[in-house]
């Protein structure tokens, strides 16, 4: 079983999928007047790259034992995850219209028992990374070649459970595990560095036994090259610090903490849709 890249993106596939995901996420949040667009938009290029360029999966077989796993640890970014899974074929795109409705499968935070393709329930921060660690350990034990990717927010790194998981992954030399940190530098109410500073994040992960790569999180070339690279001789887990822009793609949302869970009015929605082309 190979892990060849699905696309080199010369056809613009990933860009096209990411654009569709942003448009859909915007509609979902506007319709429901609930959601987390800022973090959706900073993460969407990572997810589009993973699902359309990197991950080995079959939407017809969500329980396929050898699938690559993607764990969305920043579970509030459902606008990114739900649109990615719909685009990947796990469920009909029409389901997105039910976002957060009464008894919808598309809860405000993802539930694996509601939706195929969701690997674990997240929402409270600092949960997805330890679960991804367990998935990677299961792969290591079995000698399986599936890979495990987990995306956390950067503010999320303030949760101590991440550092428990980071230590264990480093000590076990879990080369099949990739942590992606959505480094948009803003948490709910303020910049991370003004709240409980994370820098130097790269040195922290190196000290915990990880290989660290810092990339531009909206550059599909860099994302593909980094996330799609074969494990090769690497003997450590890989930490990808993806420098991103909260609210990426909509001018008035970019780098604004208030768009963490801000919702657009009609005028803002129309303006945002115009920019998403």
């Amino acid at each position: 079983m190979t892990h060849a890249l699905k696309t080199d993106n010369s056809d613009g596939l990933i860009r096209q999928k990411a654009l569709w995901m942003r448009q859909q996420a915007l509609k979902m949040v506007y319709d429901k007047q609930l959601g987390h667009l800022g973090g959706d938009f900073s993460a969407i290029d990572v997810l589009a790259t993973l699902y359309f360029g990197v991950l080995r999966f079959d939407p017809e077989r969500p329980d396929w034992a050898d699938r690559d796993r993607f764990v969305m640890s920043k579970g509030h970014a459902t606008g990114a995850l739900y649109t990615a899974l719909a685009a990947a074929g796990y469920y009909p795109e029409a389901w997105l219209d039910t976002y957060m409705e009464h008894h919808s499968k598309l809860n405000g935070h993802p539930n694996r028992q509601y939706l195929p393709g969701v690997e674990t329930n997240t929402g409270p921060l600092g949960h997805g990374f330890p679960v991804a660690l367990g998935i990677a350990i299961a792969g290591q034990m079995a000698g399986a070649d599936y890979r495990t990717y987990v995306l956390t927010g950067d503010g999320e790194q303030q949760e101590g459970s991440n550092w428990e998981a980071a230590m264990t992954a480093g000590n076990r030399r879990l080369k099949n595990l990739t942590l992606i940190i959505d480094r948009n530098r803003l948490q709910q109410g303020a910049p991370t560095e003004e709240t409980n500073g994370l820098d130097p994040l790269d040195d922290k992960y190196r000290a915990f036994g990880w290989q660290v790569v810092e990339i531009e999180g909206h550059d599909y070339g860099q994302l593909l090259e980094t996330l799609g690279a074969p494990v090769g001789d690497r003997q450590k887990p890989l930490c990808v610090i993806a420098n991103t822009v909260k609210g990426k793609g909509v001018s008035f949302m970019e780098n604004q903490a208030k768009w963490h869970h801000g919702v657009p009015n009609a005028e803002q929605f129309a303006q945002a849709m115009k920019e998403l082309i």
Partner: peptide, 28 residues
């Protein structure tokens, strides 16, 4: 020895790893 995972004194990760192992087909 390969089927005992000792995460050290880290209970949150211990339980999360249990969930992940179940995802990976084990009975932890």
């Amino acid at each position: 020895p390969q089927r005992l995972v000792n995460v050290g004194i880290a209970e949150q990760t211990m339980v999360g790893v249990g969930a992940g192992l179940a995802n990976g087909g084990r009975i932890p």
